[in-house]
Simulated assay, not measured.
Amino acid sequence: MYLEKLKLDGRVAVVTGAGQGIGAACARALGEAGATVVVADMRQERVDACVAELAGLGIAAHGLALDVTQSAAVDAAAADVVARFGRVDILVNNAGVAVSDVRAEDTSDSHWRHHMDVNVDGLFWCCRAFGRRMLEQGSGAIVNIGSMSGFIVNKPQPQSFYNASKAAVHHLTRSLAAEWGARGVRVNAVAPTYIKTPLTSFGIKENPDMYKVWLEMTPMGRVGQPDEIASVVHFLASDASSLMTGSIVVADGGYTCW
């Protein structure tokens, strides 16, 4: 009974920013659970590489070049997915940016807008477009990738723009969950710690002093791996979490305990 709830056979899952890191891990996790996976990323070469890798594992995968900041393109993508597969059951909003270590007083308009365009606006365009399809069919699960930075202020790197964008993701998650819960669509989020991906390379690979602080601030004494977040996403996308909506699941190695 319980293992059956984790299976995703017959479901169609869309993962944004799926070309690398957490997104690629989520695509594989959902595919291994039985879902047909739509790999969406703004860079075609990443899409192609991820689709090829999934296909090599026997996972049904379809590629989609998508810039989530373009609302019309997102609407077209949702229409394309439903036309191709007849439905959409899962949306993982993973596409995001983090160009950190910029002080608030030095943050340009363009730097602020870049983070809001991708992390907040793009996420909402996807929730709106794919959420409409889920509401029409009366079922669906959306999982947003937030951050522990939506709860705390990181140190030593200044990144007020990023922190604000992820706090917005968390509250948007709760707002959509409240609006759509009675109509069969669940909306949850994962709030990760530092994960070993290209987005965190500025600290892990390039700034040993910063990385030292990150580890000292984390009770488990390490950064996370993409598959550790993908496992939580899989749970939230599956029937194993059927009573959960509006939840922000913190996966931070204990970082926010202190």
Rank of each mutant, 00 (worst) to 15 (best):
S231N: 11
D117Y: 03
G122P: 03
W180L: 08
V99D: 15
V118K: 06
E179R: 06
S241M: 07
A79F: 02
V249W: 07
V51E: 00
N93P: 03
T256E: 09
A65R: 13
M210H: 14
M210Y: 14
D109G: 12
H170A: 11
K7S: 13
A13V: 07
V12A: 04
A27R: 01
A164E: 05
A65C: 12
P156E: 11
P198R: 06
C257S: 15
R11A: 05
A237L: 00
L123G: 07
V250A: 08
G34R: 06
V185M: 01
I90G: 00
M148Y: 11
T107P: 08
W214P: 09
Q159A: 15
R84T: 11
I22G: 04
A164P: 06
M116F: 15
V223I: 13
C127I: 09
E4F: 12
A72N: 10
L176Y: 04
V92H: 09
G63D: 00
V118C: 06
N144C: 01
D48R: 00
D209Y: 03
S165I: 02
V92K: 03
R128P: 05
R183K: 15
R103N: 13
D209M: 08
A52I: 05
E45G: 14
K205C: 14
V82H: 01
G140S: 10
L64F: 07
Q159S: 15
V97G: 08
L172Y: 05
I229P: 01
